[in-house]
Computed example of a mutant assay.
Amino acid sequence: MIRVGIIGATGYAGIELVRLLTQHPQVELAHLVSHSYVGQDVAGIYKNFKGILAKDLEDMDLDVLAGECDVVFTSLPHATSSEVIPKLVAAGVKVIDLSADYRYNSAAVYEAWYGVPHPDPALLAQSVYGLPELHRDEIKGAQLVGNPGCYTTCSILGLYPLLQAGLVSPENIIVDAKSGVTGAGRNPSANTHFCEVDESMKAYNVARHRHTSEIEQELSLAAGQEVLISFTPHLIPMKRGILSTMYANLTGAYSHADLMAAYEKAYGDESFIVLHEEGSLPEVKFVNGSNYCHIGFVVDQRLKRVVVVSAIDNLVKGAAGQAVQNMNLLFGLPENTALSAPGWYL
């Protein structure tokens, strides 16, 4: 059995990890760490676990985690994960970090977008970007995985095959994305409580959202040159789900079949990528509750442009599910273990 620790177990991403891992046949939930609820039963905080999981929440003890866990998931704010991860890595524990601290190929890029010096450049250089569809072989041999978030996963997977195949221009790409409110985390704020978000929709952090830099990092790898995007996130009045609509200029007179061939070449064997046929586009209700990413597109021959639509559940493929997918790779398990259930739809 894989002995698992979760730091930040009662946040939205952390508790989604708990939910998924209770169904994992090879996992023992050894330690659930929560600063806010030390000593309380997790089923008393999230009552959906009543009768299923009885586990007391603990204060963080890195020596205990290092000695009794095979893998630790860290679901903490940026610049906080890096305070605990080095000790775990030094003890030989595998770590999957859900913050942004270990997702970057360049400390300078992190510092430019987060406005603080990177807290651990040496370990950053050893980490692997945890998007399995792109970096599977590297993940398998890693000790530290920087697990990508919601906007990044949805947008990168939607555009990567087209840039890799040279079918779209790396210039003037637009990503317009909508997220459910759980993407803002569990801590309440005036911007996210019910009366503020219900019956409304708003753009935020326009032209300066931090996930822009991650998307550009991975799409630049696909294109073999620097890619800069215009990224606009929106908050919409639903609990979970991400829908990204992406616009890119075609480099030639390509048909739907031409572009589909690129997607099939890139994702034909992928367990969690669902490609929509011509005339069909993803919706968030197709993916919520699941680890799947649905991708569809329309070729706009009039404007010589493709419009790509991708959808994921921000808490699953955009956070906890992807982390479990990475864990499965780290321990040589079938990648879809505990993750193959379809979306809820309703």
Rank of each mutant, 00 (worst) to 15 (best):
V116L: 15
P119G: 13
D120W: 02
D120P: 01
D120A: 06
P121H: 07
P121Q: 09
P121L: 04
A122R: 11
A122W: 04
A122E: 15
L124A: 06
A125D: 04
Q126D: 14
Y129D: 10
Y129N: 15
L134Y: 10
R136Y: 01
R136C: 01
D137E: 15
D137S: 14
D137L: 06
D137T: 09
K140F: 04
K140P: 00
K140C: 05
A142D: 04
A142L: 02
A142G: 05
Q143S: 14
Q143H: 13
G146A: 13
G146V: 09
G146Q: 13
N147A: 11
N147L: 15
P148C: 12
C150L: 03
C150F: 04
C150W: 11
C150H: 03
Y151H: 10
T153W: 02
C154Q: 12
C154D: 12
C154E: 11
C154F: 02
S155M: 08
S155D: 10
S155E: 00
S155C: 11
S155I: 05
I156Q: 00
G158I: 11
L159G: 07
Y160C: 00
Y160D: 04
Y160V: 02
L163Y: 07
L163M: 11
L163D: 09
Q164M: 04
Q164L: 11
A165G: 08
V168F: 00
V168D: 00
S169G: 01
S169Y: 07
S169K: 05
P170Y: 02
E171S: 10
E171D: 14
I173G: 00
I173K: 00
I173F: 05
I173R: 05
I174N: 07
I174T: 13
D176C: 09
A177L: 12
K178E: 15
K178L: 14
S179C: 13
S179E: 11
G180H: 03
V181M: 09
V181G: 00
G183L: 09
N187G: 05
A190Q: 14
